[in-house]
Design a protein around this nucleic acid. Structure first.
Length: 457
RNA sequence: GCGGGUAUAGUUUAACGGUAGAACAGCGGGUUGUGGUCCCGUUGGCCUGGGUUCAACUCCCAGUACUCGCCCCA
């Protein structure tokens, strides 16, 4: 009620002011007309409340990397555009229409990275890592950029982490990489389904593509519009069309595993055997093909359990890329890798209400009253911190009420309170926040006393 | 690139062709020195542009953003 009244009074006063010829500027609120810049489409602020998810995943990542002997590499976010067009493939959607590319003031064609494998491989070649003991095992984490239509689980800037193993072609590595990736999801509490396939080497894939196209040509009349296009642009993609009529055609389509050369088939069989050794269940998925050109032989994805049909559900994807290093100008070197979509993983964690540990609680809040106390509390805070005590404060506040309120919200066990009275006595109050009782301590012994109390609990 | 839904305060939202209301959060006070309960006060908002109308936050159109699908991918 009074609010309405105030507003009316305000209006009347404004009118009066106008009538009296007071310049309007005076009554104008301080608010400027300038609009606050908004987020660029598809980009997000990762707010403090979201950070625990990233921290949680980051911690799991670090310990996994340690356990499996991977070393970290941080390639830059910006690379020559040609790195991606050569590695990922000129014809792929990612390169042909989804990169943030521009010219630098110096005239170089550069792109924000849409993925990191190409950069890791470039670094491997640039820094002569072939002279290190092979295989070289590297991991990375950071933002990637793709100019796609944003939607659930898809942003224009998103985070991935990934593991790359360069310089060895043994199938045990394929299996171990899949185990590692799957362990990650298991350990954060997600149930998963491993999808695996082999797309062979350049030779047998070419042969298979011919077979596939020949078969689909006989069915051309019944294909969807997209698939007619795929027939010429990217035949392997025919296999994961979701149109019902195409799925029926797919049933009868030749499967790549039947067209693998002896070497590729042998490799794939061994990978599966290793997986069997650790009793990791997997789904042999003949229609799993990957969107990046560099893949050869083993390809895999990990999906959340029970979400086989959804299109954006893959939490991670990876495979071998035995030709990539040579393609980028290195010596022929086999390699493989996996990358995990962090936001997608977080989305899943939230969906399943999986509990994520918060940041560690603070133990002691330092509250002060008056400028003199403030001056003593600032160094006290430093001393407590140096003693390894988890301490909190809000020194800019004046009232004790406000400070204790914050202490309560932080969930500290104790608050130290220093005011005029304590200052003159050389003491300080220790308040047990749970019990609500206080005792007076000698200021000079406060660190020792606080430590003693924290240890006793 | 294509299609559907949505757009009111920091957040969740209400109502209305005629001066926008709440809850939570924030800030201040009730205790000039005591939090987690309570009470009071207070800051702050109709996405942008055009049209219809005496009058548009409300109706219409366009744009933009968000969102959900398709495509593609993590």
């Amino acid at each position: 009620m009074p609010k309405v009244k105030n507003k009316i009074i305000k209006k009347v006063q404004e009118k009066k002011a106008k009538v009296a010829g007071v310049p309007e500027l005076i009554n104008e609120p301080i608010k400027s007309n300038k609009k606050t810049p908004q987020l660029v489409r598809g980009f997000k602020d990762i707010l403090p409340s979201e950070q625990k998810y990233f921290r949680f995943i980051g911690n799991r990542l670090e310990s996994l990397a340690q356990d499996y002997g991977f070393e970290k590499i941080d390639p830059p976010i910006l690379e020559e555009t040609s790195l991606f067009s050569r590695a990922v493939g000129k014809e792929t959607d990612i390169v042909s229409k989804e990169m943030f590319s521009f010219e630098t003031p110096g005239g170089e064609r550069v792109s924000l990275r849409p993925e990191a494998t190409a950069s890791v491989v470039r670094a491997y070649i640039n820094h002569g890592m072939l002279n290190l003991p092979q295989p070289v095992k590297l991991y990375y984490t950071g933002p990637m950029f793709r100019y796609e239509r944003p939607q659930s689980g898809r942003y224009r800037q998103f985070s991935q982490f990934g593991f790359e193993i360069l310089g060895d072609k043994h199938p045990v590595l394929d299996a171990q990489l899949i185990i590692l990736a799957n362990n990650f999801f298991q350990e954060i509490g997600l149930k998963t389904s491993v999808q695996i396939n082999s797309i062979g080497c350049a030779v047998c894939r070419k042969e298979y593509k011919t077979q596939l196209v020949n078969y689909y040509k006989t069915q051309k009349a019944n294909l969807c519009v997209d698939c007619k296009e795929r027939l010429y642009k990217n035949p392997l993609r025919l296999l994961d069309c979701k149109e019902e009529k195409c799925s029926i055609i797919k049933e009868e389509a030749p499967q790549i595993v039947d067209w693998l050369c002896d070497e590729c088939k042998n490799h794939f069989v061994k990978v599966l055997e290793f997986l069997d050794e650790v009793q990791l269940p997997y789904n042999l998925n003949p229609s799993l093909v990957r969107g990046l050109d560099y893949y050869t032989n083993t390809v895999f994805e990990i999906w959340p359990e029970g979400e086989e049909k959804k299109s954006q559900s893959a939490l991670c994807g990876g495979g071998r890329y035995d030709n990539l290093i040579e393609l980028l100008g290195g010596r022929p070197t086999p390699a493989l890798g996996v990358s995990v979509g962090i936001e997608r993983t977080i989305l899943k964690l939230k969906e399943l209400n999986i509990e994520i540990p918060d940041r560690e609680k603070r133990d002691i809040f330092v509250a002060q009253l008056g400028e003199a106390a403030r001056k003593k509390c600032l160094p006290l805070y430093e001393s407590l911190r140096k003693e390894g005590i988890r301490v909190a404060e809000n020194f800019s506040k004046d009232g004790l009420k406000a400070q204790l309120e914050i202490a309560g919200k932080l969930g500290v066990r104790y608050s130290l309170i220093l005011g005029q009275k304590e200052l003159s006595e050389g003491t300080i109050l220790l308040r047990d926040m749970e019990a609500g009782v206080q005792e007076t301590l000698n200021f000079n012994k406060v660190i020792k006393e606080v430590k003693k109390r924290l240890e006793n609990q």
